[in-house]
Amino acid sequence: MQLQEELAALLREHGALIVRIARSHESDRGRAEELVQDIHVAIWQALPKFRGEANVRTYIARIAQNRAITHVMREARRPRSAPLEEIVDVLPSDTTGPEDAAAETETRRRLQRAVGELPLALRLTVTLALEGFSPDEVATVLGISSSAASVRLHRAKAALMNKLNSGEA
């Protein structure tokens, strides 16, 4: 019971991060929810092993990205019977007026789509960068050196901006 309470507390704090990572890898709402559940399960399974050596946010991001990869691999061999449903949430915004809010929602939708269309290696990196992780933290999550993480971050950001500016997304 204590473990479940611990999990609930962690998810209250980092739930949004998990949802965003899941959505960056899965644009179908139902499957994204399945992935979020998978990540919750993985965190719950990993919690007893967590000794607090790493930053808990980094630890959660690592587990979330791991589960996301498994999900992407599984989905690659699962046929999609219906067109993907775009995930667009009506989110609280600090902008004023309905027009600003609509423009922001549209930009967010384009950003989500652009991230989702990146190759997996760049997507993993750019998602972490958008979440505010430093190159060192990205390196820890991915299991590569800091210099390799910096190079990949640079490349991932450039690819994302390119997609956004070219209007592909």
């Binding site: 739930g15 949004a16 965003r20 559940q37 949430d89 950003l111 958008l130 979440e131």
Partner: peptide, 9 residues
């Protein structure tokens, strides 16, 4: 924009 709040499951 990315980190704008989303509902946590």
């Amino acid at each position: 924009l990315w980190q704008s709040d989303v509902p946590a499951a």
